[in-house]
């Protein structure tokens, strides 16, 4: 299973017809590799003589030993065309529409890979996964690898999005990051990467879809295993709706962030468009 929505191919085709080069980042849009942004990848860009503003640590000492002149190596920026996916795989996500979430992530990865970008995917619960999956646009197995990771998600453990995000900040060098979660934690504060973008995709199942008015429900927390009895009335529903609204507003208010809520069955194609527009804005 590839977890790619059928309309994604059309979206990718339609989006590629647009003057993407004019709207791509300079590093990607530049036809001459000389104008691509320098960075820390292993793709060598150039070797030039050491200047006073260069970091002395970048001096190629072997070359210095042979030529008695100081040269520095420049590499392409590896993060410019790579996007980080942080996928919440904690137990609470099992309550969200998991298949729809997998399809959305898979479709988005497909679109990005089709449009020439790379995707580096981590899963997280109370911490970031040790290993990540890197899918490149040119590599043929990128989409398959992402599908394999998505199908292997077991949704277990306790969520700690803030800790996982901090771990990613220390490891990853991507400028743009997608966080896929139900965001059930209180007072979650995430900061957008410097000169990048933070995309928060919230998947949830509304409690109103599970509870009947006037009923009394035993609610089992999938992460803590505790049970509470929740009587559900119109007043409770109003309170819940107000809480949800406050939570969404809090997440949407993060600077330089993109936030969307996706319930089960809600259309995904407009969200793809919005994301792509935002990426290429």
């Amino acid at each position: 299973m590839t977890y790619v929505d059928p309309e994604c191919a059309a979206i990718a085709t339609a989006f590629s017809r647009r003057n993407l080069r004019a709207r791509l980042p300079n590093s990607i849009a530049a036809k001459d590799p000389m104008y691509r942004r320098s960075g820390s990848s292993y793709d060598l860009k150039s070797i030039r003589e050491y200047q006073s503003f260069d970091d002395p640590r970048t001096i190629d000492w072997k070359l210095y030993g042979r030529s008695d002149r100081a040269f520095v190596k420049e590499f392409y920026d590896e993060a410019d065309d790579e996007i980080a996916f942080l996928v919440d795989s904690s137990a609470s996500m099992a309550c969200a529409p998991a298949d729809a979430c997998r399809s959305f992530i898979g479709s988005l990865a497909y679109l990005l890979l089709t449009l020439g970008m790379g995707v580096r995917l981590w899963t997280y619960t109370d911490g970031l996964s040790e290993r990540c999956l890197a899918a490149r646009a040119n590599s043929g197995g990128g989409q398959a690898g992402i599908a394999a990771v998505l199908s292997s998600l077991s949704f277990e453990g306790v969520t700690d999005t803030a800790r996982s995000f901090a771990q990613w900040r220390s490891r990853g060098r991507q400028k743009r990051v997608f966080v896929f979660s139900d965001f059930h934690e209180h007072d979650l504060n995430l900061r957008s990467p410097h000169s990048g973008g933070l995309f928060l995709i919230r998947y949830r199942t509304p409690f109103t879809a599970l509870a009947e008015k006037g009923a009394e429900l035993e609610v089992l927390d999938p992460e803590s295993g505790r049970i509470v009895v929740v009587p559900w009335s119109q007043a409770d529903e109003d309170t819940w709706a107000a809480g949800e609204l406050a939570r969404d507003r809090h997440l949407a208010a993060i600077p330089r962030s993109f936030f969307r809520v996706l319930d089960a069955g809600s259309p995904r194609a407009p969200v793809y468009w919005d994301i792509l527009e935002r990426l290429y804005a």
Binding site: H186, V219, E223
Partner: peptide
């Protein structure tokens, strides 16, 4: 009767509670 009629569902408690 209450236990018979009561449904059990899985849902994060924090999504039901806006406070700690």
């Amino acid at each position: 009767v209450a236990l018979r009629l009561r449904r059990r569902i899985r849902y994060p408690h924090e999504l039901l509670s806006p406070r700690d």
